[in-house]
Design a protein around this nucleic acid. Structure first.
Lengths: 338, 338
DNA sequence: CGTTCTACGTAAATCGTTTTAGGTCGCCTT
DNA sequence: AAGGCGACCTAAAACGATTTACGTAGAACG
């Protein structure tokens, strides 16, 4: 039941453990091994079914042969996003042949992030991607030693490398588009999570409206971060007599709820009310009418974050370039043309 | 830069490494440590910022203190499902205080599953949940040693413990419901993946229709496993003049595409055509009209799978009870009442 | 023949923890 | 005072792999 060790291989090949290890590691370095011996060892390894023990390797310190990275996200992160992030990372990882990359995942309650540095020191993993951190995590992030291999996902920072998107710019653009359509008032549906990304979008919208000459008024409505949230927010709005004509939803989920509510209230989209979402999730193409939204390249971003993290782990001294993706609106049928 | 070891703690507390370890492990066992010494060690550990090294622990063999489990799924698994599975597992894990459970994830191309046994022997992880395996994985699964800690997710098997749902029964029930509504023909939209779950649903439907006295005819249409697939399948159907009146979609994604297509073709749901989905994903409540679907408790199932796996790892000899969840239809607005 | 290479291997230390099989010391019995 | 017993603590051996520094031949060289 106990698995074969390198010692077993050595015995079977009738060589020392050192020799076996040398062969198995393909070390072309200072030590030479004859072809005959090499063959013997390789065959022996094959025969006994040798699998190198990770724990032993890690303990001994094999920086670079196998790397374990972790993705951490707050518990209340939306399932769709999790899937996309992981998919992006996995796709990237499987293109890498050396070193072998293992992926761990972990959730935490906002503001109660486990000590990443400790986990790295414990060699639980070699580095981490902090995804969708909230404002409660800021203190932690700032207290962290820049030497610990961390990449921030969907958030920018002076102190750490990050991969994010131009949420501010996207906010501006959303506001600009709808302003151009001549609305008197813009209603912004904001998911009530304290993520930097969401806040930047809000800032972008507000910034644009403040700086435009004849900008429409606007109101910010905070709602829970899911379909129900958007649905109820809009229902309340309509019931209180305030019929929105332009709805900027800072999440597709919320937009979908909103769309459903508008339909329930007999309001036509986009004739009575234009709607625009954020994220360009898969389903947005198939809502009725299909949802205009901001395309957020989550998979790409995640892959880049993973790549940066690996660089940082493998070449700690090398400086990393953070990334901010430009964002563009995908026009579909919930907004009017022009 | 190198992190403090237990040796540092011992030195700081002026005791032996053994003592430090004993204290740090709270071993109430055969060995006793005075309160004074215990305090000293604890404080020393605190002061030097001691973090036990996982690799060393694993190597030494500490079965039970920390357990690492892995979830493996085929690369083409839908992002939404991934998120739900992980969420379910994570939620469960965080209720467990002892042992500490770490989670790894890994994807593979159908039929190219990495050697789980090897990974366990390499102590990369202690056991795995095989999620959404396809038929191409059957051979691998059957070749696996039943002693390696594996739990099958959404698939049944004679050989391994599993958590799945009564997909066959759900298929029957879907067919029964729509048959009762007096359709002449049932159109089944089947995602073209070779998963047991999907197949069981088909079998259930076919079984019911074959055994019912005055059953409607039916046709099976295979389509890609996403919204576009459902959309295009229905468009083709309608364009070729075959207007479906009852659409059994074996996935919500496909159903959403179908719904959109029906709308495009000017067919009213449920008046002209009834639609029923499968999975009860979040968005189904907010399609227009809201989608009737089969509720699949993914999170619960995932949590149970994780729990079973932990049992198997912690108490290898103990026999496990596999689980098959009953499934029920959630009636919303794409099906007629009664 | 003595010296120096070269080519091929190996002994042994090391990584950080856990655990077993003993110490040691003082006190209590008889 | 010899023996026994608790209470407290520690030495040392694992766990499995990697790597450095050091053999040992035989060949080549002068």
């Amino acid at each position: 039941m106990t698995s074969p060790t390198i010692r077993d291989v050595a015995k079977a090949a009738n060589v020392s453990v050192a020799t076996a290890s040398l062969v198995l590691n393909q070390k072309a370095g200072s030590v030479q091994i004859s072809v005959r011996t090499r063959e013997r060892v390789l065959q022996a390894a094959q025969e006994v079914g040798y699998v190198p023990n990770m724990a032993a390797r890690r303990l001994r310190g094999n920086a670079g042969r196998t790397v374990t990275i972790a993705v951490l996200w707050p518990v209340d992160t939306r399932v769709g996003l999790i899937g996309r992030i992981l998919t992006g990372i996995q796709e990237h990882i499987r293109t890498i042949s050396e070193p072998r990359v293992e992926l761990m995942v972990e959730t935490y309650e906002s503001g109660r992030l486990r000590d990443v540095r400790g986990l790295v020191e414990a060699s639980t993993f070699n580095g981490a991607i902090l995804a969708n951190t909230t404002r409660e995590d800021d203190a932690y992030i700032h207290s962290l030693d820049p030497a610990v291999p961390v990449v921030l996902f969907h958030r920018h920072s002076q102190k750490y490398p990050y991969v994010t998107a131009d949420n501010f710019g996207a906010g501006c653009e959303m506001a600009r588009q709808l302003t151009a359509h001549g609305h008197e008032q813009l209603t912004v549906l904001v998911p009530d999570v304290s993520s930097q990304a969401i806040q930047d979008r809000v800032h972008g919208i507000v910034h644009f409206l403040h700086s435009a000459p004849d900008a429409p008024r606007h109101s910010l409505i905070y709602c829970p971060f899911h379909e129900v949230g958007g649905y109820e927010a809009v229902m309340q709005l309509v019931q209180s007599g305030l019929r929105p004509t332009a709805l900027l939803c800072l999440s597709d989920q919320v937009a979908m709820g909103a769309l459903c509510a508008l339909n329930t209230c007999g309001m036509k989209v986009p004739e009575h009310c234009e709607v625009i979402g954020f994220d360009n999730q898969e389903f947005t193409q198939f809502t009725v009418p299909s949802l205009s939204t901001v395309d957020l390249p989550v998979e790409t971003m995640a892959a880049q974050a993973a790549d940066m993290l690996l660089q940082k782990i493998l070449h700690p001294s090398q400086e990393l370039m953070s990334i901010e993706h430009p964002l563009r609106i995908v026009h579909r049928d919930t907004t009017r043309q022009g």
